[in-house]
Write a protein that binds this DNA or RNA. Structure first.
Lengths: 365, 365
DNA sequence: TTGTAAGCGTTATCAA
DNA sequence: TTGATAACGCTTACAA
């Protein structure tokens, strides 16, 4: 008593006349394009033409098909469609981040939200993977590409000498680097110049009269850590200010506090510190305060990111903000275009915005 | 000159001998199970048996197949497999959150990371959708279910009278509520009792000698907002303390600061405030400080979440922490089990942990 | 304008 | 233990 193929089934989620099976009713069979075609008295091809908004269908047929679709509550099965078209309408995002940093970073959720605003109108979906280390990261990309689950992938948080540009080239899958371009990698990129926020910070502090401006770095090995450190260093030189050794840290509050103490322990402590992110800056304020320094009277502090807390603390934090959702939006549109075989078009993104609040002031006399 | 089907193609990503086409080499054809079968001189069925670790294949054949797989770098196409098995090995997570709250909330990234640790070993993927409002939320679920793109969905951030339990039942898709159970919805749930953290907070403050303990609520309409408010109210009653009207807020720093001022403006201001999250608590500390109050000497403050910043500020925040990654992990395993037709097994989660830091102290004399 | 039929790359069935 | 062959649900030539 095998069920015959075709529109003879009883589609829809209506209750069947069978005796009640209390434990777990089997999931109802979903209607197929065949059911719709039969109900609308047209061929499957016609239904396909209608759902895909292609011309060459009479208005009457089109109307009947639409009615049948609504009746049955049918929508095309993504997998079957993908199998035919070889297009998944799905993009992949792999995030490698130590768990303790994940909930810290304002970038990730905002970026994902931005991606969605770009993807949703196009009917694309996002598959997300969070991995702990380099090895699982590589496997994640291999799998996403290999089983054809996604049409393209984002590359975020690039590290110095990151193997992923090479990897995606080998895997032959469209990819987009989110962040500063990697010259020579052959992988297109989208991003704004991190350094600009730092340079604005240094200029701001210089104009307040600061001459010894320190920097607390982010986690080693990341491209954006380096670009922020280099921007700071170059901005100092440009402003004719003395070089200071950067204080290494890793984006966590604890590391930021330690780095702050190291800087303040110097014989010639800085009168202002530019941090690679807000979390470390806030921890730095606490560290400085605990030494009896007042912020901003004795020490000026600048963060990076403009997290929601930045203006809830005392003093409100001077910081640099990127329009990360806009970034995600643009990245999504760009990668979709790439997967559709279009040529890469660099996108203009809103520049970093420097926000002056109360954590910066002229240096002590 | 149409390309014939079969193993005659030239699979793999090796360079072809063709003349270089500078602009954009077409993506190489991926090898299929047929190619592997041909190379290993077995049938497709045998290859399928091997990749799926099913018995009934001779060791020799198995070996030849594995070799061929490695040679060709083949892995089964997810869509074709899904079409056959009707199982996507994919779960869906829809997050409705106003963008400004997204980067604030420590729950989301931690939960996603936890889900991944549960999903990765099972070979499952997660498709994520971030939506701005109820309408797009409904559409997102309808599409994920109707598409057949996912095998099951998570329901997070439940609201009072949330339509989603009904929706997923209608859509006939396995679902799991993440949070307190919704009685009568018929949808299984996983979560811990939020209220426990709040009750511990009240008891802690009571034991310090506080008698007027206020509460700043989260955004209205959320189940977890209500459960925290109710826990506070009940804990007061239980401790024999006077009732105070809860101060409404919405989880943002600004709302937390305002609510704090409203409480402190009272004729009988509280000597301690329990906030529905850390962000509001930190903003509350700033607000209180700006009025000349000292924390904790004049006002004790308790948060909720234990965000990374909680112990970087001054004073370090007394707060309640949930093991959100563990939660995500368990949720993932549970939902996978549900999609595989297994019966729902409630899971024991680590309890809320109450963390005493320096933002609480005995009330002023 | 419409219908027929051949893929797409798997897994499942069943006979050998 | 194996191999044909038929689904799975859709798109797309091509024919009518």
């Amino acid at each position: 008593m095998t069920q015959r193929k075709g529109p003879t089934g009883e589609p829809g989620a209506g209750s069947t006349g069978e005796a009640q099976t209390p434990p777990r009713p089997p999931r109802a069979r979903r209607p197929t394009i065949g059911d719709v075609a039969a109900l609308a008295q047209v061929s499957k091809a016609t239904v396909s033409f209608v759902v895909n908004d292609r011309p060459g269908v009479s208005p009457q047929a089109r109307r009947r098909v639409r009615a049948a679709m609504d009746d049955l509550g049918w929508q095309p099965n993504a997998g079957a469609r993908a199998l035919s078209t070889r297009r998944w309408q799905t993009l992949g995002l792999v995030i490698r981040r130590p768990p303790e940093l994940l909930s810290t970073d304002p970038f990730f959720p905002q970026f994902v939200a931005g991606i969605e605003t770009g993807l949703a109108p196009l009917g694309y979906a996002l598959v997300l993977q969070v991995v702990p280390d380099a090895e699982s990261e590589r496997r994640a990309y291999e799998r996403l590409a290999g089983d054809g689950r996604v049409d393209g992938v984002f590359l975020t948080d690039l590290r110095v000498d990151d193997p992923r540009p090479t990897l995606v080239t080998e895997l032959d899958i469209p990819a987009l680097i989110v962040g500063p371009p990697q010259e020579g990698s052959g992988v297109p990129s989208i991003g704004v110049d991190d350094g600009s926020g730092i340079r604005q910070a240094v200029r701001h502090l210089r104009s307040l009269g600061h001459r010894r401006i320190g920097h607390v770095c982010g986690a080693e090995g990341y491209v954006h850590t380096e670009s922020r450190r280099i921007a700071w260093s170059e901005a100092l030189a440009e402003a004719g200010l003395p070089d200071l050794p950067p204080a290494k840290a890793d984006f966590t509050g604890a590391s930021g506090a330690q780095a702050t103490h190291r800087l303040l322990d110097r014989d010639d402590p800085p009168t202002a510190i530019v941090y690679a992110n807000d979390l470390m800056a806030i921890a730095g304020i606490t560290a400085a305060t605990s030494r009896g320094l007042r912020v901003p009277e004795d020490l000026s502090v600048v963060g990076f990111d403009d997290i929601p807390l930045a203006d809830c603390i005392s003093p409100p934090l001077t910081t640099a903000r990127q329009d990360v959702p806009a970034w995600g939006h643009a990245a999504a549109r760009t990668l979709v275009a790439l997967t559709e075989g279009k040529d890469f078009q660099p996108v203009e993104l809103p520049p970093v915005q420097f926000i002056v609040r109360a954590s910066t002031a002229p240096p002590p006399a």
